[in-house]
Amino acid sequence: MALNTPQITPTKKITVRAIGEELPRGDYQRCPQCDMLFSLPEINSHQSAYCPRCQAKIRDGRDWSLTRLAAMAFTMLLLMPFAWGEPLLHIWLLGIRIDANVMQGIWQMTKQGDAITGSMVFFCVIGAPLILVTSIAYLWFGNRLGMNLRPVLLMLERLKEWVMLDIYLVGIGVASIKVQDYAHIQAGVGLFSFVALVILTTVTLSHLNVEELWERFYPQRPATRRDEKLRVCLGCHFTGYPDQRGRCPRCHIPLRLRRRHSLQKCWAALLASIVLLLPANLLPISIIYLNGGRQEDTILSGIMSLASSNIAVAGIVFIASILVPFTKVIVMFTLLLSIHFKCQQGLRTRILLLRMVTWIGRWSMLDLFVISLTMSLINRDQILAFTMGPAAFYFGAAVILTILAVEWLDSRLLWDAHESGNARFDD
Rank of each mutant, 00 (worst) to 15 (best):
Q7N: 06
P10M: 10
K13G: 07
T15C: 08
R17T: 06
I19F: 08
G20Y: 05
E21H: 08
E21Y: 06
E22H: 11
P24S: 07
Y28N: 10
Y28I: 09
Y28P: 10
C31V: 00
C34N: 00
D35V: 02
L37K: 07
S39G: 12
E42H: 05
H46P: 07
A49R: 07
A49P: 04
R53D: 06
C54Q: 00
K57I: 08
G61W: 14
R62T: 02
W64T: 13
W64V: 12
L66R: 03
L69I: 09
A71T: 08
A71E: 02
A73V: 07
T75E: 02
M76K: 05
L77K: 03
L78F: 03
L79N: 05
M80N: 05
P81R: 08
G85S: 06
H90T: 08
I91F: 02
L93Y: 01
L93D: 00
L94M: 03
G95H: 06
G95V: 00
A100R: 01
M103Y: 04
M103L: 05
M103V: 04
M109W: 01
K111Y: 09
A115F: 03
I116G: 06
S119T: 10
G127Y: 01
I131D: 01
I131E: 01
L132K: 05
L132V: 06
T134Q: 09
S135W: 02
I136W: 09
A137K: 11
W140M: 14
L145C: 08
G146S: 06
G146Q: 05
G146D: 05
M147E: 01
L149H: 04
P151W: 03
P151V: 05
V152L: 01
L153N: 07
E157P: 15
E157Y: 11
E157Q: 12
R158Y: 12
L159C: 03
W162P: 01
M164G: 03
I167A: 04
L169K: 02
G173W: 01
G173M: 09
A175R: 01
K178I: 00
Q180G: 09
Q180Y: 02
D181H: 02
H184A: 07
H184Y: 15
I185P: 00
I185F: 05
A187R: 08
V189H: 10
G190H: 02
V195P: 06
V198Y: 15
I199E: 06
L200Y: 15
L200T: 13
T201V: 11
V203I: 14
V203W: 09
S206P: 12
S206C: 15
H207M: 14
L208I: 15
L208N: 07
N209H: 10
V210H: 15
E211Y: 14
E215F: 11
E215K: 15
F217D: 05
Y218T: 10
Q220I: 12
R221L: 14
R221A: 14
A223S: 13
A223R: 12
R225T: 10
R226D: 14
L230T: 11
V232A: 14
C233A: 00
L234I: 09
G235E: 07
H237C: 12
Y241C: 12
P242A: 14
P249N: 12
P254T: 12
L255E: 09
L257P: 10
R258M: 06
R259Q: 13
R259N: 13
R260Q: 07
R260W: 09
K265Q: 10
A268C: 11
A268H: 03
A269I: 03
P279D: 15
P284Q: 10
I285G: 01
I287K: 15
I288H: 00
I288P: 01
I288W: 00
L290F: 04
G292F: 13
G293S: 12
R294W: 03
R294Y: 03
I299V: 09
S301N: 07
I303N: 08
M304Q: 15
M304K: 13
S308F: 08
V313P: 06
V313R: 00
I319K: 10
I319G: 15
S321A: 05
I322E: 11
F326S: 10
F326A: 11
F326P: 03
T327W: 13
K328R: 01
K328I: 00
V331L: 10
T334D: 07
T334L: 15
K342L: 12
C343P: 15
L347Y: 13
I351V: 10
I351A: 13
G361Q: 00
W363E: 00
L368I: 10
S372A: 14
T374G: 02
M375P: 01
S376P: 02
S376V: 13
L377Y: 08
I378P: 00
I378M: 03
N379S: 02
D381E: 07
Q382C: 04
Q382A: 12
T387Y: 06
P390T: 10
G396W: 02
A397I: 04
A398C: 10
L404V: 12
A405Q: 04
E407H: 04
S411K: 10
R412E: 00
R412K: 09
R412T: 01
L413G: 09
L414W: 07
L414V: 10
W415C: 07
G421W: 10
F425G: 14
D426Q: 12
D426K: 11
D427L: 15
